[in-house]
């Protein structure tokens, strides 16, 4: 038996909007740690890892570890029927073939049950090793979204380079080239507006902008985004989900042949 009650139901709505265009079907795993998901896009270029810790739920009951295969498009359709202020409860029976989403209005005068069919999904779980990253950039998520959107009007690939000078986002296309440089800036009124560049070693990597733009669907979840880069590894683009967890996107680099 599984019963997870999330007072801030809008978080789950935003989480689905952040992953449904990248991944069609995925297994949600439920354990005493929390509600999690790991899935790759169909071409295995990007991987998304979601964790919503059990402590973040008002009520968290998960008697046995449970893996529930869901079509994310269908799940998104159902969650769109929840109001932004609604409390969302996820319910499922061990071995059952459905999951129920219950939406309660804040004043408790409207209660809705949406039951969704589960599916069998054959997914491979990858081990993500802990890594020391060469450079880590934290910036306002809206700024990162703007940069990815702007550069994708010029080119298909972004080169992200971190040096002593700052972090540079570059692209090139048929009509010309673009370079956007951000410098560290911590003298801001609000900490979420800061640009923090932690450079252990300079790094320069190329990535497909199509995927970066897809990751920025998570912008409504968090004021800040963290980009971790190492020359030997996929980039990690991380958005915190309130105090309860994170969405991490891993994107494999483009490599010169």
């Amino acid at each position: 038996m599984l019963e997870l009650r999330l007072v801030q139901g809008s978080l789950l709505k935003k989480v689905l909007e952040s992953i449904k265009d990248l991944v069609n079907d995925a297994n949600f795993d439920c354990s005493s740690t929390g509600f999690s998901l790991q899935a790759m896009d169909s071409s295995h270029v990007a991987l998304v890892s979601l964790l919503l810790r059990s402590e973040g739920f008002e009520h968290y009951r998960c008697d046995r570890n449970l893996s529930m295969g869901m079509n994310l498009g269908n799940m998104s359709k159902m969650l769109k029927c929840a109001g932004n202020d609604d409390i969302i409860t996820i319910k499922a029976d061990d071995g059952g073939d459905t999951v129920t989403f219950m939406f309660e209005s804040p004043t408790q005068d409207k209660i809705a049950d949406f039951e969704m069919k589960l599916m069998d999904i054959d997914s491979e779980h990858l081990g993500i090793p802990d890594a020391e990253y060469h450079s880590i950039v934290r910036m306002p998520s809206s700024e990162f979204q703007r940069i990815c959107k702007d550069l994708s009007t010029i080119g298909d690939t972004v080169v992200i380079s971190v040096t002593k000078e700052g972090v540079k986002f570059s692209t090139a296309g048929d009509i010309g080239t673009a370079n956007i440089v951000l410098r560290q800036n911590t003298t801001v009124d609000k900490p979420e507006d800061a640009i923090v560049i932690e450079m252990n070693e300079p790094v320069s990597l190329s990535f497909a902008l199509r995927y970066m733009n897809s990751f920025t669907k998570a912008t409504p979840l968090s004021d800040t985004v963290t980009i971790s880069l190492s020359s030997e590894l996929p980039v990690v683009v991380e958005y915190k989900v309130a105090e309860m967890g994170y969405i991490r996107y891993y994107l494999a680099p483009k490599i010169e042949e």
Binding site: V45, L126, G127, P234
Partner: peptide
Amino acid sequence: GPRQSTITKFFDKA
């Protein structure tokens, strides 16, 4: 131009 690599090149099956 550069070639797109895949995640499975970097991360192994758990």
